[in-house]
């Protein structure tokens, strides 16, 4: 992350703390991105499942609970999937919110660090 032209800028402990914070935020940002992707996929799968349920004319469908496929009335499965979808949607909202806050904090730190170190520091990813 660090690249310098050999110029001398005094790095204080406070600067170091800011760099640490930035590094951790950047890491968290990538974790959030991965989580969002996984959660979106889950949501899509649930969406697919509920669409299939609309098409089927069976009254009892196999629904996986634990490791077995339980025979569950279709209405109940529909309700369960609805609940699961609500869950993932809520999770997604929370993740998006956190992503925004992480990004905001990162750009604040960028301002501070670039102001001090100019082009002696590189905080961008290629």
């Amino acid at each position: 992350m660090q690249q310098g032209a050999g110029s001398e800028t005094v790095v204080t402990w406070e600067d170091q703390l800011n760099i640490n914070r930035f590094s951790k935020l950047n890491n968290r940002f990538h974790e959030i991105e991965d989580d969002i992707k996984a959660e979106k996929e889950r949501n899509e799968n649930l969406e697919d499942a509920s669409n299939e349920l609309i098409l089927t004319d069976e009254d009892v469908v196999r629904f996986q609970i634990g490791d077995v496929f339980a025979h569950v009335p279709r209405e109940e499965v529909e309700d369960r999937i609805e609940l699961m979808k609500e869950d993932t949607t809520k999770n997604l909202e929370k993740l998006e919110e956190e992503k925004e806050s992480v990004l905001a904090q990162m750009s604040e730190l960028k301002k501070v660090l670039y102001a001090k170190f100019k082009d002696s520091i590189n905080l961008e990813e290629d």
């Binding site: 660090q2 640490n20 590094s23 890491n27």
Partner: peptide, 18 residues
């Protein structure tokens, strides 16, 4: 651990630049 990694990386860059 990540803090320690960052501190060490920064120190390496600074010793090198110095």
């Amino acid at each position: 651990l990540r803090d320690q990694v960052t501190i060490t990386q920064v120190t390496i860059a600074r010793v090198y630049n110095w």
